[in-house]
């Protein structure tokens, strides 16, 4: 369900970038989705189909790159891969971490045709 909110936020960014770069038609949008954000690619694609309608992105494709999670223990500084339900440091056995990767949802790039 949160995919729709994310798709709406994504399109705001996309239109902003398109305007600044004088793009009249968008062909491809590339996003990075951290594993911990639990974005379901199929649902995200459906949400994208809904938000791209009647816009300069109406024929665009959405490429989703999943980013694996990585966290760092705030106590011993060990880096490890957490799972969705387990952020315990393998050394300290405490879940007191900084998430280095996996929480992001980033607009990476836009491919489009420029206005003449």
């Amino acid at each position: 369900m949160h995919e729709m909110s994310i798709a709406v936020g994504l399109m705001e960014q996309v239109f902003d970038v398109a305007e600044k770069n004088n793009l009249k038609e968008i062909e491809e949008i590339e996003i990075e989705a951290g594993f911990l954000r639990q974005i379901v690619p199929e649902v995200m694609q459906q949400a994208f189909l809904a938000v791209r309608q009647d816009t300069i992105a109406r024929n665009a494709t959405l490429k989703i790159i999943e980013v694996a999670p990585l966290s760092e223990c705030n106590i011993c500084k060990k880096q490890f891969q957490p799972s969705l339900n387990d952020f315990l440091c393998p050394t300290c056995r405490k879940a007191d971490v900084k998430v280095l990767k996996g929480d992001e949802i980033i607009l990476k790039s836009i491919q489009g045709k420029e206005s003449k």
Binding site: I6, G9, Q13, I105, L107, I110
Partner: peptide, 14 residues
Amino acid sequence: MKVTIAKRILKDND
């Protein structure tokens, strides 16, 4: 034309 951005999608809300 490809534009590389690397911006958080929810940055306007933030």
